[in-house]
């Protein structure tokens, strides 16, 4: 379960205080498929970043699986993120000079697993994300859709229970969007908690979405 309590994230400029997120209270249960809707700059990505523990709020608490992650020191927070959260970025954020296989294996390095276990997990994830055939290709040589599927495989490889997707379809064509949605549906069936930040209308008609959160100017719209 994810609990966000009285979350505030603001930036002070010389003239004023700018709130990226204000008074956010939200509970997401395990296995839910949550859509964060809102225009660009509304605060969706900031919310995802706080859930991922990549940024800290100015006030408020983020509790994931009963753990108040904000208070964790870096070593523990990184380990927590590594084991519980998989992230799919809008711009994929792959290590372009490495192969698809090695990109997917990257989150497993700090877990100190054996090469055999890493190989098993990477192959499973590549299979789920339907990108096994490109395992040895360099990330830099992939198309947008292939990069997206590599990013999905990387998010799955640690067996994370929470998958965060930041504008995942923004750079995909129609065919690749549909492939992506099918993979998400499969992940949902695996009881993963999925949070998608998007303003793409393609998500609106999905029948397996459990919650839609509208964010306007950093606040959750009633």
């Amino acid at each position: 379960m994810i609990e966000l309590i009285e979350l505030n994230r603001y930036y002070d400029t010389q003239r004023e205080r700018f709130y990226a997120l204000k008074d956010i209270n939200l509970t997401i249960n395990r296995g839910e498929f949550v859509l964060l809707n809102g225009v660009s700059g509304s605060g969706k990505t900031t919310l995802l970043t706080l859930i991922a523990g990549m940024d800290k709020p100015n006030s408020g608490i983020v509790i994931i699986e009963g753990e108040p992650i904000i208070k964790l020191p870096d070593q523990h927070l990184s380990k927590f993120r590594n084991q519980h959260i998989g992230i799919i970025f809008q711009h994929y954020n792959l290590l372009e000079n490495l192969s698809v296989y090695d990109n997917v294996a990257t989150p497993l390095i700090p877990m100190r697993l054996s090469l055999k276990e890493i190989d098993k997990r990477v192959k499973e994830s590549l299979e789920i994300a339907n990108i096994s055939h490109k395992a040895s290709s360099l990330a830099s040589s992939l198309s947008g859709g292939e990069k997206q599927r590599t990013a999905i495989a990387r998010a799955l490889v640690t067996k994370a229970s929470i998958i965060l997707c930041d504008e995942p379809t923004a750079n995909l064509d129609k065919a690749n969007r549909e492939i992506f949605l099918k993979i998400l549906e499969r992940l949902h069936k695996l009881n993963k908690t999925i949070i998608v930040s998007t303003h793409d209308p393609i998500f609106n008609d999905l029948d397996y979405i459990t919650k839609i959160v509208h964010i306007v100017d950093g606040k959750i719209a009633k």
């Binding site: 380990k79 993120r81 792959l94 700090p110």
Partner: peptide
């Protein structure tokens, strides 16, 4: 990217 994927500062 490494940090986002769960690599600690130490790693």
């Amino acid at each position: 990217i490494l940090r986002a994927l769960g690599w600690s500062i130490r790693d």
